[in-house]
Amino acid sequence: MEYIIATIILFISIIIYFKIADKYNIIDKPNHRSAHTQITLRGGGIIFPVAFIVLCLFNLNEVIEHYWSFGLGLLAICFISFIDDIRTLSSKVRLSVHLLSVILLLYFTNTFSLMPFWVWPIFFVMIIGTLNAYNFMDGINGMTGMYSFITLLSLLYINKDIISFTEDSFIIYPILASLVFLFFNFRKKAKCFAGDVGSMGIGFWVIALITLLIMKTQDYKYILLLSIYGMEVVLTIIERILLKENIFEAHRRHLYQLFANEKKVSHLIVSSVYAVSQLIVNVFLINSQLHLLLIILLIFIPFGGLYLGLKWSLKKQYNL
């Protein structure tokens, strides 16, 4: 019953937000780098921090005892990202809040006490990088919602059937938020986009869950629950470096962008293919007892080869 009520609250919350966004002109205007052609409400991803607030309403004592540091980190990164959606902030301000949020995340996951101090900077770089990867990949309808939904379902399965690393509700609430968001975003003409608040918010939550799982099992293979995003972003950055482009400027070189913009493939099909690809990886990953290095090779050789082949073919076809 709790989850039904929570879902209703989330639906009402996002509809109220739509009215606010419409009144105050919080919109995404298409430009030459966009994969969409219509003005669309921005910031629908506010549903993810709202989901944490709803979680607090039903589990306040538990949140105060166990999840307060995560909540502060989530709300901080979502707040600064939402402001950045409305008006561009300096990179120093964004980075400062991101670093504070990551510190709170690492404290929440007991990384500081379970890992030697020399490993801490590695976690900082990986988490900041993964958050930005989430943001880079949020470019077409359904991508963020579908990919996050598959990853969260995989984490829920692991938590229920393999090893318990957190409360089920801590995974179910972002799943509910993803479903509500997808109802309005997984459409040919999306009602809203996630915005930075959405990609950073759900990215932060997913990373926290994966970090909890790694700290519990001391098995780093679970990083690969985000391997499709990771592979795409790393290979695209390498490509842009080789082309001597500024990697910090917006672009349209991601494979999903080429399919959506040049090939004119439906956003929903492209997003679904990415989600299903990660699901295939997750099924293999969860059931594999192989050494981490071998798992990485068995994932990245076929998917990386397919990625490079498709990228080369599209670039040749459209003279990019």
Rank of each mutant, 00 (worst) to 15 (best):
I46A: 04
I46S: 04
I47A: 05
I47R: 04
P49M: 05
P49T: 04
P49D: 03
A51V: 05
A51I: 08
F52G: 02
V54M: 06
V54Y: 05
V54H: 05
V54A: 10
L55D: 15
C56N: 13
N59C: 09
N59H: 15
L60G: 12
N61I: 13
V63M: 14
I64Q: 06
I64V: 15
E65T: 13
E65G: 07
Y67H: 15
S69N: 08
F70M: 09
F70I: 04
G73W: 00
G73E: 00
G73N: 02
L75Q: 07
A76E: 02
A76F: 11
I77Y: 05
I77G: 07
I77S: 07
F79M: 11
F79Q: 03
I80D: 06
S81I: 02
F82N: 04
I83H: 09
I83L: 14
D84S: 08
D85S: 08
D85H: 07
R87D: 12
T88I: 14
L89V: 08
L89Q: 11
S91L: 13
K92Y: 14
R94C: 07
R94N: 06
S96H: 03
V97H: 04
L99A: 13
L100K: 03
S101L: 06
S101Y: 03
V102I: 11
V102R: 00
V102T: 00
L104C: 08
L106F: 00
L106P: 00
L106D: 00
Y107N: 01
F108S: 04
T111I: 08
T111K: 01
F112D: 00
S113D: 10
L114S: 12
L114F: 11
P116R: 02
P116T: 03
F117V: 01
F117T: 01
W118P: 02
W118M: 08
V119Y: 01
V119T: 11
W120E: 02
P121F: 03
F123K: 01
F124E: 00
V125I: 13
M126R: 05
I127N: 04
G129N: 06
T130K: 07
L131E: 05
A133S: 13
Y134L: 05
Y134N: 09
Y134W: 12
N135G: 07
F136H: 07
F136C: 05
M137A: 09
G139L: 14
I140E: 10
I140P: 10
I140A: 12
N141F: 13
G142V: 13
M143S: 14
M143D: 11
M143A: 14
M143K: 12
G145W: 10
G145Y: 09
G145D: 09
M146I: 15
M146V: 13
M146E: 11
Y147H: 14
Y147C: 14
Y147A: 15
S148M: 09
T151Y: 06
T151P: 06
L152F: 13
L152P: 09
L153C: 12
Y157H: 06
Y157Q: 02
